[in-house]
Design a protein around this nucleic acid. Structure first.
Length: 227
DNA sequence: GCGACAG
DNA sequence: ATCTTGTCGC
């Protein structure tokens, strides 16, 4: 039967990938506001081999109160798509979904390494993962993809809006005093206020959320063992 | 036409 | 993302 247009994770061309994003974008829940006190929060990240033909995706689930890792899973595979800014999600999505399937728990929130609405078509990785899984999701990027912004004040918790055209697509958030800010955006079933609050709760000490840090270590270790 | 461009 | 030396600082 048909194979291309019905698969929302592995399109066969750039045009098909863009079409998938346009097709799924209306399914994003922009209302939220999402859980104010999630019991568990998942971090997702991917590491690539230097050769570029192998990757490891990891998901770590943390107790939101203690930030201890209570569950985790990895998936080693191949990039499912070339790297194209704006279509980045298609590279990592299959491996990340496979890792999510291997969890024994169902996290209350996904914290993705990349953007959500702060995307040219308002459908970055965090939106895609949220829509496909049905889970609340947010994006936390280390560098901007779209939008204009001014640096927030130097203290932890300070933020400034990330604007693209007439839209506020996210926030530039200072998670540690005097440290380069991160870019927070809504993925699915979350308000921007709540997304900001959750990121601050996950960054008691470092610039990046503990979820991202634990997932990063796990996928790097998995990649080392695989290669 | 020229840069910019999540990871 | 990954490749990379040294350097500053707790």
């Amino acid at each position: 039967m048909s194979t291309g247009s019905s698969d929302v994770t592995t399109p066969g061309s750039v045009a098909a990938a863009v079409a998938v994003q346009e097709e799924l974008r209306p399914l994003v829940d922009l209302v939220g506001p999402g859980p104010s006190a999630p019991a568990t929060v998942a971090g997702l990240d991917v590491a690539y081999a230097k050769s570029g033909d192998l990757l490891a995706a990891a998901v770590t689930v943390l107790d939101a109160r203690t930030l201890a890792v209570v569950d985790s899973a990895v998936c080693v595979g191949r990039p499912a798509f070339g790297y194209v800014p704006g279509l980045f999600a298609f590279r990592e999505l299959p491996a990340l979904l496979a890792a999510l399937d291997r969890l024994t728990t169902r996290p209350a929130l996904l914290v993705c390494d990349g953007h959500g609405l702060a995307h040219p078509r308002r459908f970055g990785l965090a939106c895609h993962l949220g829509v496909v899984t049905g889970l609340p999701a947010i994006g936390v990027g280390k560098t901007p993809l779209v939008g204009e912004w001014v640096p927030p004040a130097a203290e932890r918790g300070a933020w400034s809006p990330l604007r693209d055209g007439n839209d506020v697509v996210g926030r530039v958030l200072r998670t540690q005093a005097g440290v380069k800010p991160v870019f927070v955006s809504v993925g699915h079933r979350m308000s921007l206020d709540n997304a900001t609050a959750q990121v601050l709760a996950l960054t008691p000490r470092y610039r990046l959320p503990e979820t991202t840090r634990t997932a990063d270590r796990l996928c790097r270790d998995a990649l080392t063992q695989a290669s």
